[in-house]
Amino acid sequence: MLVRAVTLALLLTMSGLAGAIVVRHDVDDARYRVPATEFPALVDMPGEGHGVLIAPQWIVTAAHTLPVHSVLDQVTLNGQQRKVQRVVVHPGYKTLPQSLIDPAMATGEAMLIVVFLAGIDDIALIQLVEPVTDVAPARLYDGSDEVAKLAKLLGKGATGNGADGHDPKGPNRTELRRAYNRVTSAYDRWFCYVFDEPPAGEPLEGTLGNGDSGGPVLIEQHGEWRLAGQGAWKVVQGNVVTARPGRYGQVTCNVRLSYYRDWMEQVMSGPQPRLSSDPI
């Protein structure tokens, strides 16, 4: 339930997640670790994956972080369980069909999975039962000029380093880490970046790992870091069954929230559904 990758298209799409922060091999991991106060609006989905509080009663996440075989009834924010009233999934979201997974598992070639992931609307809104009063919502980036901008990434998913990648079967919920990268492309639903090998890249260059899906991708605007995207999927070169995600050169694509601004506003400002306990 975090960054869905292409070589991970199998593991990611089967688990529904994409993970924590993968770091440079030549920088001490301790420099990437940060306390929860770094980004209080971070939401932990059940098991793994993230969302972000964007209004007192609303959370935005990547749709593939949602439980597949159960109802989402609570999430964790600021160390507290918050009850969920309803989940609104974008009508353009589709789950990865088994008919694409099976051939990729058999052959190691997953280009059609990449095409599928690029064509869906991987976003959902979660409405809480009670408004949050102890955490300030994250402000949304209101531009659409993400290319070449420095992005800050946060997540608690799987970790490793760019030389070795991370173990796709390792834990997908670890400590909170922060890294940076620079946006290389942006179009319609997605903006993407490349995990550059040193000496190229940022001093704290990094990329998302399994379990980081839905995690915040922030861009600085008007003197503050604002929410521009959320971790979604990754393109991993080579055989998707044997390749290791999180190595240098891999591309990570993120849900581009500027593309969905009107849809989010429409959902959050629209009429509220009648609860079963409401009088008729």
Rank of each mutant, 00 (worst) to 15 (best):
M1V: 08
M1D: 05
L2T: 11
L2C: 14
V3D: 05
R4F: 02
L11Y: 04
M14A: 09
L17E: 09
A18V: 13
I21T: 02
V22H: 09
V23Y: 05
R31Q: 14
A36C: 08
T37H: 03
F39M: 06
F39A: 08
P46A: 06
Q57Y: 00
V71K: 13
L72E: 01
T76K: 14
L77I: 13
Q80H: 15
Q80V: 11
R82D: 04
R82Y: 04
R86M: 01
R86D: 00
V88R: 00
G92R: 12
Q98M: 14
Q98R: 02
I101E: 03
P103F: 08
E109V: 15
L112Q: 15
I113N: 00
V114P: 08
F116N: 07
L117K: 05
I120F: 07
I120N: 11
A124M: 02
V132F: 00
V135R: 10
V135C: 13
A136V: 13
A138E: 00
R139C: 02
G143W: 10
V147H: 05
L153H: 15
L154P: 14
N161R: 07
N161Y: 01
H166I: 03
D167Y: 05
P171I: 06
N172L: 04
E175G: 03
V183Q: 04
T184Q: 08
T184L: 10
T184C: 01
S185V: 13
A186T: 12
W190E: 10
Y193K: 10
F195T: 03
D196E: 12
P198C: 10
E205C: 06
L208M: 07
L208R: 08
G209P: 07
N210M: 06
G214L: 01
P216Y: 00
P216D: 06
V217P: 05
Q221R: 15
E224Q: 11
G231H: 04
G238L: 11
G238P: 14
V241P: 05
V241E: 13
A243R: 08
P245H: 02
V251L: 08
T252Q: 10
L257I: 14
S258A: 08
Y260T: 05
V267S: 00
V267I: 11
L275C: 13
S277F: 09
S277M: 07
S277K: 04
P279I: 10
